[in-house]
Design a binder for these strands. Sequence first.
DNA 1: CATGAATGAGGCTTCATTCAT
DNA 2: TATGAATGAAGCCTCATTCAT
Lengths: 238, 238, 238, 238
Amino acid sequence: MARAIRLRQVEPAAPVRRATTRGAGKPAASKPRDAAQTKLRILECATTEFADHGYAGARIESIVGAAGVNISLLYQYFESKEKLFIAVMEGAYGLVRASHHELDVRDQAPAQAMEALIRRTFRIFVEHPRIIGLLNSENVHRGRHILKSPYIRGLYTPLLEAIGGVLQRGVATGVFRRDVDPLDFFVSMNGIGYFYLSNRYTLGVILNREMMTAEALSHHEDHIVQVLLGYLRPAARK
Amino acid sequence: MARAIRLRQVEPAAPVRRATTRGAGKPAASKPRDAAQTKLRILECATTEFADHGYAGARIESIVGAAGVNISLLYQYFESKEKLFIAVMEGAYGLVRASHHELDVRDQAPAQAMEALIRRTFRIFVEHPRIIGLLNSENVHRGRHILKSPYIRGLYTPLLEAIGGVLQRGVATGVFRRDVDPLDFFVSMNGIGYFYLSNRYTLGVILNREMMTAEALSHHEDHIVQVLLGYLRPAARK
Amino acid sequence: MARAIRLRQVEPAAPVRRATTRGAGKPAASKPRDAAQTKLRILECATTEFADHGYAGARIESIVGAAGVNISLLYQYFESKEKLFIAVMEGAYGLVRASHHELDVRDQAPAQAMEALIRRTFRIFVEHPRIIGLLNSENVHRGRHILKSPYIRGLYTPLLEAIGGVLQRGVATGVFRRDVDPLDFFVSMNGIGYFYLSNRYTLGVILNREMMTAEALSHHEDHIVQVLLGYLRPAARK
Amino acid sequence: MARAIRLRQVEPAAPVRRATTRGAGKPAASKPRDAAQTKLRILECATTEFADHGYAGARIESIVGAAGVNISLLYQYFESKEKLFIAVMEGAYGLVRASHHELDVRDQAPAQAMEALIRRTFRIFVEHPRIIGLLNSENVHRGRHILKSPYIRGLYTPLLEAIGGVLQRGVATGVFRRDVDPLDFFVSMNGIGYFYLSNRYTLGVILNREMMTAEALSHHEDHIVQVLLGYLRPAARK
DNA sequence: CATGAATGAGGCTTCATTCAT
DNA sequence: TATGAATGAAGCCTCATTCAT
């Protein structure tokens, strides 16, 4: 049994020893001495590794193996495992931020707008599943990195503001109930989907269900919408 | 920087020289020598350690340090880190089961019954916060232990059945909407609270909120009830 | 892979919790509080363990497991692993000595006498296969125990004397060559059989042969006789 | 007394700061940094360690101590104790093969040829005494490694064929007896010398003889030749 | 006489990291 | 920029042995 418990599937990514047709003019697309690209590849592989195994479970060797680079290079670029992790986290949060930014719901009716926000929120997680693992890891470490990175703190502001705005408009037009706190709502909106994905393995077993088929995901997305819009309905008039 | 990133606070648990009737003449029964109790203490400390640091991040040394026992003893009782982890998981799931068992909602009106189930579900997490960390860990490892433990697999059946029953009664009496799938509902019911707790550190930063005060917890509990009962309300008649 | 490499087949020998029909008169043949017998059983199992795995590879736990006794008892009787090993060695050597003692070839013709000695020597090893392993172990440790045990030193004296006597008689009657040193002969006589048995596994593979069937053993015994008696033949007269 | 029983004489092998051209100005090339050589040094020290103490008794720490390298390096090169042992075994068998290879007896008269084979066989053991310990260890483990290594299995084929050929020629020319099985002969040929060396400590005590002086070894070598050639003499004609 | 609980020292192995080129 | 060699600290686990009853 050893220390294993890890489900490795490394596939060394073909060490890509650059086809040194040096001086041939072409910039050797595959893996030239292109620091930026190499660094990116490391970051990419590190993201997967940290997401899959958590901080403590992640292995530097696995990362460089997958990235097909020498281990010293990783240290040259990122200094330490922890700093690499922080870089990964910032990249991941950046993704979330970007996704939220491109969403403008100010022109839609409150219910549609809210539905769009809900679906988008879930879809971000589905499309970037590694974010789940990273957030878990971050919480295992009690948010110590998020605390260090000031720019991360404003991450969800746009979404929170969007929620606040839509809620207000919905209350004003009478389609939403009045007693909803945007922050609470934000939590519920993320929670139902997050939990579904983050706990997909245990839930899959407990519920005896396929969790990650396109169909199942789509079904759950609809369910979240129904729960939240259902909740938002104003109390029925007598 | 070494390998750290862990926030250790070992506190050797005061080698448990049982607070015997000191001064009564008896030479202070220096070490427990009570296998069952010792085993339990190890399990207890292991639960905390695994919950706090995940499987990979947990340290056997920390566990035995906290339990105040020799490391070999741990291996005598649990054989390996992985088996210890499984024992911990079974204990944790056992807690959940026990909590649900002692709740009988068959005599209550559907809305009250559902509210009781919802609150209880959240309270279990609040009262046993280590379960969150353990579940996370289990999901990092893709549910491999839960899969091995048939006893765990059937664990949630009673709760699922309870939910199903209450939903049916609510639909029958017209107080609940008709289109609710118990499994979906189960996910939402757990998800909102789980997410709140599991991501308390990142949420605390992002929302700039105290998450774990009694007040905040109570507030969130109420919120979950409102969301879910709000959702369950039948559509208003035209 | 771990540390294994051991081929255990413990079979705990049924811990034999003595059927405490105490006071029933009968001395409870199985495993009463009979120190001598218990001690013997430990010694017996230790012999097997040391022979099979060598000193370093032997496990106290395996010994007590096989003997069905508590580990502390072993320490009470034998004090330490090393002293137990010495006890085992003395027992084994005692066996050899006893075997040699009961052999009296003074009345036989030299060739028959020598054949008897040769066959007996090989048979001792075949019948007490554990001696091989023990001797190997002893040699790994550079004979340090044999050196400590003065009584062991005279162990082979009877055999050596027997060989010397038979050789003399054979030379005198002209059936043996004249230039044979008894000590050299002693080595050859033991060596061919010992090597066959001690290296049975590697030889089995290299020669692609069954080594330990009754037939193979008997064949090899005959071979030893032929080699040695062939060697002893005096040079042919011209 | 602890676990000892080992007669350690580690002698840190003087971290191998290669006796570079000191005083020539160059700063003394502090560490080898020659992978092949380092690996070889580890293998060399491992061979000694395994030969001296057997597999179970060998200590990784001792090996790296003697080799003057960091323990991790050993694992980088050999993965595990067992694989290191296999590498050692293959190296040892390789030695044997090489020694036999360089001997060509096809042009010699049968008796001389056989004598050459016999002497060479003994000399291999004498010159590479560690092979004895390794073979012992291998037999303690029931040949499990030899079984895994197909390359080892075919190792003795050349020698066996050489023996077969010489025997045939000797029979044809009437200088050897007819009833000799090459495999049996192979065993005897190895056995007498192997036993002498493998059991040198116990034999030394029992026979009260110096075993390892050049003189004693040479004497025993002659003895083996005499035994085997004596045995091979054809039966005297009536 | 016998036992189960407990321990310290050490064994194998892993892992993040640095060195030298 | 990139690499392979090398390292120290620690991690999991085992094993002979002792303690307390």
